[in-house]
Write a protein that binds this DNA or RNA. Sequence first.
DNA 1: AATGAATGAGGATTCATTCAT
DNA 2: GATGAATGAATCCTCATTCAT
Lengths: 196, 196, 196, 196
Amino acid sequence: MTQSPVPDERRPPNPGPKAAARNRAALVAAAREVYAEHGLDAPLSAIARRAQVGQGVLYRHFPDRAALSAAVLEENVCQVEEAAAAEEAGLAGVLGVLTWHMAESAAFIGLLHVDAESGDSGILPYALVLSGRVERALRRHLPDGHRLEAAGDLMLAVDMVSGAVTGPSREERERRALAAWRLLGVEVGPVRPFEA
Amino acid sequence: MTQSPVPDERRPPNPGPKAAARNRAALVAAAREVYAEHGLDAPLSAIARRAQVGQGVLYRHFPDRAALSAAVLEENVCQVEEAAAAEEAGLAGVLGVLTWHMAESAAFIGLLHVDAESGDSGILPYALVLSGRVERALRRHLPDGHRLEAAGDLMLAVDMVSGAVTGPSREERERRALAAWRLLGVEVGPVRPFEA
Amino acid sequence: MTQSPVPDERRPPNPGPKAAARNRAALVAAAREVYAEHGLDAPLSAIARRAQVGQGVLYRHFPDRAALSAAVLEENVCQVEEAAAAEEAGLAGVLGVLTWHMAESAAFIGLLHVDAESGDSGILPYALVLSGRVERALRRHLPDGHRLEAAGDLMLAVDMVSGAVTGPSREERERRALAAWRLLGVEVGPVRPFEA
Amino acid sequence: MTQSPVPDERRPPNPGPKAAARNRAALVAAAREVYAEHGLDAPLSAIARRAQVGQGVLYRHFPDRAALSAAVLEENVCQVEEAAAAEEAGLAGVLGVLTWHMAESAAFIGLLHVDAESGDSGILPYALVLSGRVERALRRHLPDGHRLEAAGDLMLAVDMVSGAVTGPSREERERRALAAWRLLGVEVGPVRPFEA
DNA sequence: AATGAATGAGGATTCATTCAT
DNA sequence: GATGAATGAATCCTCATTCAT
């Protein structure tokens, strides 16, 4: 029983390969939104729909669910790295950017925690890599003798804060994140995206 | 021709209403196990199967998924309350019991966080109630001037620790929880269930 | 993202467990028909539809595609065995029944050949068992000195005949099967189902 | 500012119409391999990929799935015809070549049987043509009074043998083909491709 | 003429939920 | 009150086919 789509009198226009890059970007953006609204288990079809793209396109760009989440997270991590690269940024500044992402999107919160939740997850190894990149970005600005200097403490703190960031609204999430950093005795700069 | 009360060997003997309580308990226990293994999204059918009970029984006792999770969490909270009721327990002691539950089960970790993740959730109000009960249990042993004394800080800390408790193994989870409490500058007693 | 079917104001009646046996039979019958019309790769949904049964029921009774095909084939093999068990039947008689099934259904033709075609197939082991049962049924009536007496020749001949049985119509298939047996120098009795 | 005819390194150099023939050949070869490995239902995309060719090229050369299979079969049939054309070849010799192809490729086995299996198939008429060509090639060497001389018997025998050729390995297939010819009382020459 | 991205229908499979027995 | 079968919607994923470049 071979597949045979309807003889197809009327097909939507095929925008051609030019759309490839646009589609990829649209998918990542859509994923970010959908993840934020419905969590990481949102149906892939919803993401494709929001990106105004066929399901097949999603699969072409991201072979599986993990690849898509990874792409979203990757973007966030890049922003943090760029913030760290700006020489004038102090630790507080970089943490501000990091915190902004935490408040912005439930996805970011969840993605750094994949390790525990899913045994099946193919994100795991990649999440570790990203986690390492975040750690390096932060540690670069960590003053000697800082209370999170000991090995492991820095990322544990990040985990703790992101774990505490729950709440239905963006504002509530930001409020909780700041309170969490305060409890840890860490100063955080203005909560904002990098250079936006 | 007398009527023969043969128990109809094709059907299990009707256990009578006595079984009701046993079933409920079996379901909660099964749910706890299944949640720990497969997370909170585990199929309900798996829980019924593990409890050796028909699917209908599950629905009789718990009208929806939320009710079942709530029942599991309820048990944990009770243990914490009992620990707090034991006069000799200090804050550290109660936190030890709380931490034990966090390490024991991924379910417990997740359940106090439902508020943010699920818009559909009917657990929310109940989770708040339980959260309040945990807070009262802890606050009862909170010495004056403790660094978590300010309103909100106590449960925020609990959230932070439980948010940091990720890791595939029980041991790893316990290790992370203790490290998290240490970062918060809070002393924790022996990690153990209440009176076991 | 949990599954949540429409709140469901109107559901078709649930016939209750009584229907289980009827459903299983309906599925096998439907499968036989659909296989005959569309081949072994026919969509399972078509079979469920023809059986007037939900897709889930199909999966409850037959965990995978192979299990369903096996059930169909099993029935055919049983008929051949019963034909062989009837003492008065000679080899020709049993071959007549076997040939009837070959002509009747493309499924039967294909199922004894699964070994080669599909690497993934879970039918394979079961097909071997069934093949053995057919062989024993036939060999029981094989006179000493018959030209197919040597090991392997009997089932090879069956394979050859069933392999030759192609043709869009039942009649064409029967004609070809008989011609094939004749080429092999084997006499075949009346082509008919067992006791029908 | 002269216009620089840099070949635009991002695009493969336009191979010109020369490539057309090469592509066609590559597709047929790829199809042969893929069919052998995955059966006749293998995805067309896999064939295009194996041929190192875009999907569009496949459609340019072969308007549908049937056309591609036909092309593969066509090549086989040509070999048989060439074998028959070599005067010194006896029937046994030609059958040897035919048998080699049967053993070589599951595709060849299947292709002569398309008539029955697929209602949709556009191959059917072409398969008949090819079947006729094979028959003429063989009959040319059929001695008077041969047991397959009667109309229809010759190709029926071919069908029977090819139908019996199942088995996962090339060797197993060859063994079965030879056993089948033996059962039919037909002598077969060395199993080999034509002039290779 | 070649490329390979986009499209979207279709098939497999899983589960929440109902309900006859 | 328990059982567990039936239902079918929803999701995942795969491909045949088209077509802009």
